[in-house]
């Protein structure tokens, strides 16, 4: 499996891709620094809504993951090198799992450091809050990675479909239509955040901590299984 992992790491580490991810990851840090340097009347709830919920969990994290995850299979489908892997005498899960972990490995430093620095600055180095935000954002990243890796294999319009999902579903419907919030990776991520630091973050979500852990696991594993199934059934170009 290490061969597929290392090969995918190399494929995902394009200079331009890393640069774009760096810029995206810096945005919440810069915004938070600005809020701290120029004190305003932003409450914890407002900061959570604007920076953590909308920006980090709802935009930056899925966008960074989308840029990487859809390439994990997408590029190889497009340039027809996927057969190099699928013709190897290894089960399909040994191709999917390393590719997924390579995706997470590339995206995680950017997102985790961004979340860590943002919260560290915002909450005056509160370790519990910083840990809660970082862990929950990374958990969200893993779920997004699982979904978008599948998307990269399922369609050659993965970027477009992924953007629609981020903007329309995560950004609009699950924000303004409360009934569908239980089907949002962002909501699971925030529920984890609240569960990990109930002292600081208001419990405004509809999910409990236990449910959030369970649903997150189901989403992650479910899309891994869908990706394996897709790789078994598809015609490899």
């Amino acid at each position: 499996m290490s061969s597929v992992y290392l090969l995918t790491l190399r494929q995902l580490s394009g200079r331009w891709r890393l640069l774009v991810m760096s810029v995206l990851a810096l945005m919440p840090v810069v915004l938070t620094e600005s809020l701290v340097l120029f004190p305003s009347s932003v409450s914890v709830e407002e900061f959570e809504l604007i920076v953590l919920n909308t920006m980090l969990a709802g935009s930056i994290s899925p966008l960074v993951v989308l840029a990487i995850a859809t390439v994990a299979f997408g590029n190889e489908v497009e340039d027809r090198t996927l057969a190099n892997l699928t013709l190897a005498p290894i089960p399909r899960w040994q191709i999917v799992i390393p590719k997924l972990f390579a995706t997470i490995s590339v995206a995680m430093p950017f997102i985790a450091i961004s979340a860590l620095v943002t919260t560290h600055v915002a909450f005056n180095a509160d370790a519990t809050a910083t840990l809660a935000v970082t862990v929950s954002i990374v958990a969200g990243l893993a779920m997004y990675a699982s979904v978008f890796v599948f998307l990269g294999l399922a369609t050659n319009q993965a970027i477009g479909v992924g953007l629609l999902y981020i903007v329309l579903w995560e950004g609009f419907f699950t924000t303004y239509v409360s009934g569908v919030r239980v089907f949002s990776i962002r909501a699971y991520s925030l529920a984890l955040m609240h569960g990990l630091d109930e002292r600081r973050f208001a419990d405004t979500d509809n999910l409990g901590f236990g449910v959030a852990i369970g649903v997150s696991a189901v989403v992650f594993v479910g899309f891994v299984l869908l990706t394996i199934r897709r790789l078994r059934r598809m015609d490899v170009p």
Binding site: L7, R10, D79, R80, P89, I90, R232
Partner: peptide, 23 residues
Amino acid sequence: RNNHALFGRIGVMSEHETVYGFM
């Protein structure tokens, strides 16, 4: 089809000439 154990006995060179250029 999906008999990956067999793949170890087969060598396939497809018509597509794309390679990992960085490698």
